[in-house]
Amino acid sequence: MRTRSGARAGWTAALTAVLALGAAGCQPAADEPDAPPSASGNVNKQLGELTVAAAGSMKGYSRSRFPHWRDTGKNCDVRDSVLQRDGESIKLSGCNVVGGRWDSVYDKQVLTDPADVDIDHVVPLANAWRSGADEWDDSKRGDFANDLTRPQLVAVSLRSNRAKGDQDPSQWKPANKSYWCQYAADWVTVKHYWRLTVTSAEKAALTDMLEGCTWASKP
């Protein structure tokens, strides 16, 4: 299990890991990040700043409107970059990830075959479409779908990712309850940065998930 003090918790460590992919021929697809919120940061403040609105229409939606995965090196892409960043004992063929170990934070599954690992968009593409991304151009949607800077991409079990689908936290939460604080914080961080809306039910669920997360309300 990863916690805020674990492998994914340290934003600096995560960025360092992504940048280190260059040694394997995979270059990060994101610019150097803005200063991220600290573990004791402003998640509740960011949640309060989100615009509450009814979910928009799915008219015109297609995953192809969010071009992914972008190249991050010769014959490798953002998926390879996330697999290498989030895994341990990684085995490479060129810069393609062909083996390793992944601890799926959504359901605590331990995975050793990259074919069993999905790269989840924390805020799903279809949810983003209903939350304002329908008004973006495809280039900006591609930036969102390949965002290695915000906590938008995470390697998890295929089973948990398929169960989640395009549902928001009022409809689906990770089976691993100890990850709820991190999941809610990541969801808020992504929606706040990309100026996406939340439904009233979604905001209520995020508020509930953040209760008891002492770091979320500290100044």
Rank of each mutant, 00 (worst) to 15 (best):
I119W: 06
D118C: 05
T112K: 12
C95Q: 11
P114N: 04
I119M: 02
K91N: 00
T112Q: 11
V110A: 14
V117N: 08
N96D: 12
T112C: 02
G100P: 08
L111K: 02
L92A: 12
V110Q: 15
K108F: 13
S93F: 01
V98T: 11
K91P: 00
R101P: 06
V117T: 07
D113V: 04
K91M: 00
G100T: 06
N96F: 01
V110L: 11
I119A: 06
N96K: 15
I90P: 05
K108E: 15
G100S: 04
D107N: 08
V97P: 01
I119H: 04
G94R: 07
N96M: 09
S93E: 08
I90Q: 04
L92E: 10
G100L: 05
G100I: 02
N96V: 12
G99Y: 06
A115I: 07
D116R: 07
A115Y: 06
R101Q: 14
Y106I: 05
L111A: 08
N96C: 07
W102K: 08
Y106F: 11
G100R: 04
N96P: 00
P114K: 05
D113I: 07
A115V: 11
W102M: 01
D113K: 10
T112D: 09
V117I: 10
W102Y: 07
C95R: 10
S104Y: 09
G94F: 11
V117A: 05
D118H: 14
S89K: 15
D116F: 01
N96T: 12
K108L: 15
G94W: 11
W102N: 04
